[in-house]
Each structure stands twice: as structure tokens, then as C-alpha cells.
Write a protein that binds this DNA or RNA. Structure first.
Length: 261
DNA sequence: CTCTATGTTTAATT
DNA sequence: GAATTAAACATAGA
């Protein structure tokens, strides 16, 4: 689920469910310790209990739940994380590892963090964590600036797709958006990042915009939203050539050998 | 049984 | 230092 658009959708839900409410209980299961990096169940619980939620912000794939007293809870969904709203008496969800009980007036609800693979993170802190501070511009929050992107790309020799997925270059770009954007831009994912011309960067900005808008239009759901991601071996939607599948930076990549040369 | 997966970090190697 | 690669994390689904 979680790339930039998916995380933004979760953020909106989480903010709607929690803003203005007070955390009256924190429950963590036996598997939650893996999510609290750094942290411990006891400290996490102690830090959150009794605090009111002021809002939820997001940069890239990180969310920041802002609480009274300057406390912040950072949430990363990893590969399979999600937050859901449930009645306080509802049974635990499959793969539910953390639960916040929230009181707004006399009504108590629960938001639950579910994550079967537990690659996600939950970090309570009084300052912004390094992972948050080091994030580059967020395409949804900050827009895309061709000049600064060009400067970032020029500073490294890695393959273009690897640089795009570097969260300090742009925050929130994952394997899906990177793959789709490069196809839209007709750029070879293997080309050296510092070899991108001004025209290439312009095409890339457009590709990213198109790919992100497509994610938004589909609500981050359904395989139909993918033009090339996961479609190696199928015909290119643009020129009908057979899409190639390669590995870059340890991630599978689909590309059209004809129009992304 | 095998293979793959929307993410990140770390270690080893070039 | 920079870049590359593989492995690790843990689980579900095809």
C-alpha cells in the first residue's frame, strides 16, 4: 500500500479520526516491540497517555502525529502497514499490533495500527527524528521544482531510478511511482543521474506529476492504475514493444526497451 | 514446495 | 568517499 499517495490517504483518515481527541489508552501486543525503533512499549505508552491530538502531518512516507506538550509520534507504514478506525469493543484486527483509545467528549473510539510484516515504525519523541529531518521536498506538499531536482540529480552518479527513490532527493517516491514516471518521461531508469539534461529533468517532472496524479485518481488502488509496473513481458501501452524487467537498486523495474532508450 | 512483494538498513565488496 | 550488491527483517498470496 504505502507510497506517498497511499500515505497521504492514511494521514487524512488518521487526522479525521484523532484530531482534538485525548489518548486515554495505549495497547501494544507482543509483536509491537519490533515497530518501536527506538523505544519500548512502556515508554511509548507513558509518553502518549493523557495527551490530546493536535493534528497529523506528513512528509514523504512518514506521518507525524502531533500531541499536546510538544510530543510527536512518527509513523512509517513500511511495506504493509495501515491505520484503521474501529469501535472500542471490536475484536483485534488481523496483524493489529498497536491500539490508541481516543476520547472526544463522552465517546471513545480506537485507531489501530496493523502491519503483518512489521517493517513499519512507531517512534515517540519530543523533537523531529533524523529520518524526518533528512527528507527531501515532498511532491504533494511542496510541488516539484525542476531546478532543485536537477541540482540533486547532478550531484550523484547512481542510476536515475535509484536517485529518484532516495528519500533525501524527493520524499515519498517509491518503486511504483519511480517506475511509472520514468516510463511516462521516456527515460531509461539505468541512465546516470548526473547525465540528465535540462530537457530530461523537465520530462521527469512531468512524468512524476502524471504518475502521482494517476495514483490520486485511482485512490492508490487497483492494478489497472499501473501502466508498466509489474507488467514485464506485456506489450508497452505506447509502442507495443515487449516490456523488459530488470533489477535496479535491488528493486524490480519494468521498462520499455524501445521508447525508454 | 517456490517465488514475489508498494521499504529501509546494514554489511561486505568493488 | 561513492557506489553496488546481497541479505536481513516477517508474512501473505499466487
Amino acid at each position: 500500500m504505502p507510497e506517498l499517495v497511499d500515505v497521504e490517504i492514511v494521514r487524512r483518515h488518521l487526522q479525521r479520526w484523532t484530531r482534538g481527541a485525548t489518548i486515554v489508552d495505549v495497547d501494544l501486543d507482543a509483536g509491537a516491540h519490533r515497530l518501536l525503533r527506538p523505544g519500548s512499549p512502556a515508554a511509548f505508552r507513558r509518553t502518549l497517555l493523557g495527551r490530546r491530538v493536535r493534528g497529523v502531518s506528513r512528509r514523504g512516507k512518514w506521518m507525524r502525529i502531533e500531541l499536546d506538550g510538544g510530543v510527536r509520534v512518527f509513523s512509517h507504514l513500511g511495506m504493509t502497514g495501515d491505520w484503521v478506525l474501529r469501535d472500542r469493543h471490536a475484536a483485534p484486527e488481523p496483524s493489529e499490533h498497536a491500539r490508541l483509545s481516543l476520547r472526544r467528549g463522552r465517546v471513545v473510539t480506537t485507531v489501530r495500527y496493523c502491519d503483518p510484516r512489521r517493517f513499519g515504525r512507531l517512534v515517540a519523541a519530543r523533537d523531529d527524528i533524523d529520518e524526518w529531518r533528512e527528507l527531501g521536498p515532498d511532491p504533494l506538499n511542496d510541488g516539484l521544482d525542476a531546478q532543485s531536482l536537477a541540482a540533486s540529480l547532478a550531484s550523484t552518479r547512481r542510476p536515475l531510478k535509484v536517485a529518484l527513490m532516495d528519500q533525501t532527493v524527493l520524499a515519498g517516491i517509491g518503486n511504483i511511482v519511480a517506475t511509472e514516471a520514468l516510463w511516462v518521461a521516456r527515460l531509461d531508469p539505468r541512465m546516470r543521474s548526473d547525465a540528465a539534461t535540462t530537457a530530461d529533468v523537465r520530462a521527469l517532472v512531468r512524468g512524476l506529476t502524471v504518475a502521482i496524479e494517476r495514483e490520486v485518481a485511482f485512490g492508490g488502488e487497483g492494478d489497472e492504475r499501473f501502466r508498466v509496473y509489474g507488467r514485464a513481458g506485456e506489450p508497452c501501452p505506447r509502442c507495443e514493444a515487449k516490456l523488459a524487467g530488470i533489477v535496479l537498486g535491488g528493486r524490480t523495474t519494468a521498462l520499455c526497451p524501445r521508447c525508454q532508450a
